[in-house]
Simulated scan of single mutants.
Amino acid sequence: MDVTVYGPLRSAIGGKETTLQFSGGTVDDAIDTLVSEFPRAAQYLYGADNDLRPSVRISVNGDRVESGDQCPSDASIKIMPAVQGGSR
């Protein structure tokens, strides 16, 4: 699976893109695979309750998906964590 990340996730995985071995399953499974390979990514994806933050946006092959949706092994995934902070 090809993974493209944005924002602070780039520093967690060491760049904008990576390729991971993934045998298919749900989007949650795909995210778990990413976090297993890059544990620092967890802080940007999961809340205190260890659930995927509702502000995280994920697309699979260009389509917006939810965490329980199916994700094929050869998917191209984009992950956009919430951007926090800023001032007025």
Rank of each mutant, 00 (worst) to 15 (best):
G7D: 01
P8H: 06
P8E: 10
L9C: 09
R10A: 08
R10D: 07
S11G: 13
S11T: 12
A12C: 09
I13V: 14
K16M: 00
E17L: 07
T18W: 11
L20F: 04
Q21H: 06
F22R: 00
G24N: 12
G25D: 10
G25A: 10
G25K: 09
T26E: 15
D29L: 06
D29T: 08
I31D: 03
I31P: 04
L34E: 05
S36D: 13
S36F: 00
S36M: 01
S36K: 06
S36T: 09
F38C: 02
P39V: 05
P39K: 07
A41L: 13
A42T: 01
Q43C: 10
Q43H: 08
Y44P: 01
Y44L: 02
L45R: 07
Y46E: 09
G47F: 04
G47M: 03
A48R: 07
A48I: 05
N50I: 04
D51C: 14
D51S: 15
R53A: 13
R53G: 09
P54G: 11
P54D: 14
S55W: 00
R57L: 10
V60D: 14
V60H: 13
G62W: 02
G62N: 03
E66D: 12
S67A: 11
G68K: 13
D69W: 01
Q70P: 10
Q70T: 15
C71P: 01
A75R: 05
A75C: 08
S76Y: 07
S76N: 13
S76Q: 08
I77E: 02
K78I: 03
I79V: 15
